[in-house]
Design a protein around this nucleic acid. Structure first.
Lengths: 205, 205
DNA sequence: ATCGTAGGCCAACACTTGTTGGCCAACACT
DNA sequence: AGTGTTGGCCAACAAGTGTTGGCCTACGAT
């Protein structure tokens, strides 16, 4: 798909010395590109976030983006490497899992614009949606498995949780419905925690 | 922004006769364009849905789209004229509003791809998000006002309802998380109805 | 039958996009 | 000092986009 050209430099094998990693000068540029890309993807979505705009934000030439990340899709893939860092719900009192999940998610969304970017692009469909499915499958499902009574119902429970949480993120951080934005975080938690608690631990309907 | 050219034909003034409306031949074309546009917008989102593709689906020339709708934005505005047709919740037993809302929404969503299109484009931000805010404000808020105890809390309640419903739509119809897709409609209703019921009618936290 | 007009297509324009290959400066290492 | 490599920019390409204006054809009223 993309020619090697000079090839992606990759990790430069820190050599013989166990020294504190010299960190090639290019690493700074790469990080700048990634940061700018996250911002643009989150603000504009995949299509409207042009490589040229990202490059200008990072104060480098558009061709550098190609050199380091191969293509726009490659850049996106590198920019939204999401790790939800979900806590171990198994180690919590079962009555608190709902509360813990909501607070964790809200904190995550507000500190990291990666999730907004991912949601925006995921909603656009195609590869973005697949990536989102991956996050759901690899990160949310296993956690749900730890608190769900019936293993067979785990996927359904997790999907319900995802629907509620993503819905909040959508209305609050993407669509910005005024009441959803104005809502204080603590009130939001108070409303959502019981819902998630029920979706996760209540007996099926 | 767009020149009049021949001007949008508009409604052709059915003339003197009160006859069954001759329906200019162009009306069929316009409807075909609109149908194709809804499909494409729903499937591909705003940017990826090109005028050329829509025109090809409708078996007409791309320039016709411009003639009838002025611009791509104009076409989109005409394509997603959403009317949720929300039932009068005031006329229902208060204990059933949650159930009524979910069933109505799911039916709406599955019959009409307009909502998927609107959600996809809304999530992309910009004008799409504003239009979604409009639907929320003009159609969901008034209905919530009919069942909410405290008028001051109406916006919050409505936002919570929107978050839950849009979250389901997102995971089920846009992201297509497998468990969310596989879930039977009746089961989904059984899970969601109590949640909405609580968001709308329960005393605040 | 005639003529204005609406419905439609064609070809092109202006622009933006992702992407490429070549060239140059600074650095590291011997 | 010399030399190969890395980091970077410039200019350009090919493709695809929304959009425009002109031209042709068939219909409807006169």
């Amino acid at each position: 798909m993309n020619r090697p050209h000079t090839g992606t430099p990759g990790t430069p094998g820190t050599g013989s010395t166990g020294a504190p990693a010299p960190r090639r000068r290019s690493a700074a540029t790469r990080d700048a590109i990634l940061a700018a890309a996250r911002e643009r993807f989150a603000a504009d979505g995949y299509e409207r976030a042009t490589i040229r705009a990202i490059a200008k934000d990072a104060d480098i030439d558009p061709s550098m983006v190609m050199r380091y990340y191969g293509s726009k899709e490659g850049l996106f893939a590198a920019a939204v490497a999401v790790d939800l860092k979900l806590p171990d719900l198994g180690a919590l009192p079962r009555a608190e899992v709902g509360h813990a999940l909501v607070t964790h998610f809200l904190a995550l969304w507000e500190q990291n614009e990666v999730l907004t970017a991912l949601l925006r692009v995921g909603a656009a469909g195609g590869a973005g949606a697949e990536r989102m499915q991956g996050v759901f499958r690899d990160q949310l499902l296993p956690v749900a498995r730890q608190v769900c009574p019936d293993p067979e119902q785990v996927p359904v429970r997790a999907a319900l949780v995802a629907a509620q949480l993503l819905g909040v993120a959508l209305t609050r951080y993407v669509l910005r419905l005024p009441p959803a934005v104005a809502l204080a975080r603590e009130d939001l938690v108070a409303w959502l925690a019981p819902t998630l608690q029920r979706y996760l631990t209540a007996p099926g309907p």
